[in-house]
Nucleic acid binder design. Structure first.
Lengths: 213, 213
DNA sequence: TCTAATTTGTGAACAAATTCACAAGCACTC
DNA sequence: GAGTGCTTGTGAATTTGTTCACAAATTAGA
């Protein structure tokens, strides 16, 4: 399969969000034009994005909402459950662990780790915060597929290395550092400072343009 | 000035991060090659990125670390303080409000709002959570320049409209919705679901490539 | 002062992503 | 079953972003 652009994947997520919304309202068909309007892009872009994966619509008619949303879930890998562990039981970890939209999409938080003795043992909903020394052993036993890295910047690379050697192949990183990982491990970094700097850049330089993605 | 690509702005943030790090360690000069290695890009990319804003280096020598970091701070609009208000006093709001890196970079959280009576009045460090009905009046009085939107998805668009009509020109949105804003208001959206979906897509489809940005 | 070793800045070549534009397919009507 | 009105799917054109490659600066050493 041809390499899919990151921007395409991002848009697929957006389309799926709308499809689920209108599906819940009972809408049965939609068009590339609808999806474009709601997602802030163009209808040609929507069709091109979808065309990388097949042809899901009917000419003259549009797309079946249940079918397209199911296909998108499949493409994005959401037809199954994913076991997530959170490393770093601070505020960000807490916000994520109790984020409902998480479970809705099939992400099951099945482990939380920290190395602070004050936090170890506390209950977070159904899971108990465990000592980070158990990470490797638990990863093997529980089969975590995604690790959320929410530790201080100084520890991030060291913990990331442990995550990788524990065999986990996807990391969502909240530490404000550029992690270096071996090929074959998927990484996404969410960096608040960077987001704010994009805003201040916009405020200062192009006093204006809407720089939504 | 020519329109600057979003990817360029993102990389400038990354370069600045490294410059501040090595500046703190007393390093005085660096090269496009150093910055590239640390930032996971190429030296040509670094030089091209910088070239949009001027020429800051010396041929044969490289860049002065203090000078370049100062120029980047200027370009990114970090040479001044920014007044930030947080709307939604939940976990995400809390995590942001006490994030130290925030203040370091000149972002001053000077207001927190919620509409839940149980939260209104509680102290968050130096600020007190206020009733969201006061947002517009306070925005005029305090001059907030950036709003962090951390409310549930259902309320996000409505609150965003109020932020805009209060005259705030930049929004950092954590609600998992595609906001529609008038031109001239800068928007960045951080969407956990989307990040996770990019990871699951990578796990399912190209079992492997490192999709770090 | 000349030569060698660096490293920047940038036009030109290349690659990637987006938009255009239109043929092809489908539903509905007459 | 021919005509009309829509909407998809997709090559081609265009635009945007990245990489190449090299002249121009600069330092250091002889």
């Amino acid at each position: 399969m041809r390499r899919i652009a990151e921007s395409t994947v991002r848009r697929l997520s957006i389309y799926l969000g709308f499809l689920e919304e209108i599906e819940a309202r009972g809408v049965l068909t939609t068009s590339s034009d609808d999806l474009a309007r709601l997602g802030g892009t163009t209808s040609a872009q929507v069709r091109k994005d979808l065309s990388f994966f097949g042809s899901f619509g009917k000419r003259g008619l549009g797309y079946s909402v249940p079918e397209l949303s199911s296909r998108l879930r499949e493409i994005l890998g959401l037809e199954r459950q994913w076991k997530v562990c959170i490393i770093g039981a601070g505020k960000i970890g807490a916000a994520l662990a109790r984020y409902a939209g998480f479970a809705e999409r099939g992400f099951v938080v099945s482990g939380v780790y920290d190395s602070d003795p004050k936090k170890i043992g506390s209950k977070w909903g159904p899971v108990t915060v465990r000592d980070a020394v158990h990470l490797e052993r638990d990863a093997a036993a529980n089969g975590y597929q995604i690790a959320v890295l929410a530790v201080p910047a100084e520890e991030a690379q060291r913990v990331a290395d442990r995550i990788v050697s524990a065999g986990i192949k996807a990391i969502l990183n909240f530490a404000p550092v550029q992690l270096s990982l071996p090929n074959g491990v998927a990484l996404r970094t969410v960096n608040m400072a960077m987001e704010l700097e994009a805003l201040t850049f916009a405020l200062v330089n192009r006093a204006g343009a809407n720089l939504s993605r």
